[in-house]
Computed example of a mutant assay.
Amino acid sequence: MSFLLSPMRRAAPKSIRAFSTTLPKPLARMTIVGRLGTDPEISESANGNQVIKYVVGSSYGPRDNRQTSWFRVASFAAADTPARGYLMGLSKGTLVYLEGDATMRTYDDADGKKQSALSLVQTKVEVLKRPQPSTEDNAEGGALGV
């Protein structure tokens, strides 16, 4: 005796809820792989909070016509945290993987012309490669026994 089994057919439930139960935010996320153009610096924001600022450059295009885009990044890592110490320990030339929340703002400059600025607030940073010490650093380190 043989039985013919057929798969159950059920209609997919109709959902009126979105995937997330949180309200959507007017926010864009960017991922950048590039090198630090400056050492990270601590400064104070307008409301008195400390912010770590740095620049990341990402290059694209053929070697003979390489272009670099520069991104200004802010991090709000709290004082006396490992994340802040890690970030402040990075130096110019470090290759990083960066994720950040991006917002575009428009403003009038001193001449009254409309300008646009992309603001990135770091949510994640990982070191991919540290810069090689220069030969001067190696010579000094050898002389100091470091």
Score class of each variant (00 low, 15 high):
11 A>H: 14
11 A>S: 13
12 A>E: 15
12 A>V: 13
14 K>H: 15
14 K>F: 14
14 K>S: 15
15 S>T: 13
15 S>M: 11
17 R>K: 14
21 T>K: 15
21 T>C: 12
22 T>Q: 15
23 L>H: 11
23 L>G: 11
24 P>K: 08
25 K>H: 13
26 P>G: 08
28 A>R: 09
28 A>Q: 12
29 R>A: 11
30 M>A: 11
30 M>Q: 04
30 M>N: 07
31 T>F: 00
31 T>K: 00
32 I>K: 00
32 I>M: 00
33 V>A: 02
33 V>N: 00
36 L>W: 01
37 G>M: 05
37 G>F: 01
39 D>I: 01
40 P>L: 04
40 P>K: 01
41 E>N: 12
42 I>R: 10
42 I>K: 12
43 S>G: 11
44 E>N: 15
44 E>L: 14
44 E>Q: 15
46 A>S: 13
47 N>F: 09
50 Q>G: 09
50 Q>W: 12
51 V>R: 06
51 V>D: 07
51 V>K: 03
51 V>Y: 04
52 I>M: 10
53 K>E: 10
53 K>V: 06
54 Y>S: 06
55 V>Y: 05
56 V>A: 00
57 G>K: 02
58 S>Y: 00
60 Y>M: 08
63 R>S: 12
64 D>S: 14
64 D>W: 08
64 D>P: 05
64 D>K: 10
65 N>P: 07
65 N>L: 14
65 N>E: 15
66 R>S: 08
68 T>V: 10
68 T>K: 04
68 T>G: 03
69 S>Q: 13
69 S>H: 13
69 S>C: 09
69 S>N: 14
71 F>C: 05
72 R>T: 09
73 V>K: 01
74 A>E: 09
77 A>E: 10
78 A>Q: 15
81 T>C: 06
81 T>Q: 01
84 R>V: 05
85 G>Y: 04
86 Y>H: 12
88 M>S: 06
88 M>C: 09
89 G>P: 07
89 G>C: 07
90 L>Y: 03
90 L>M: 09
91 S>A: 06
91 S>P: 07
92 K>D: 05
93 G>N: 06
94 T>K: 05
94 T>P: 04
95 L>E: 01
95 L>W: 02
96 V>S: 00
97 Y>R: 02
98 L>P: 00
99 E>H: 05
99 E>I: 03
99 E>P: 04
101 D>Q: 09
102 A>G: 14
102 A>N: 07
102 A>I: 07
103 T>M: 13
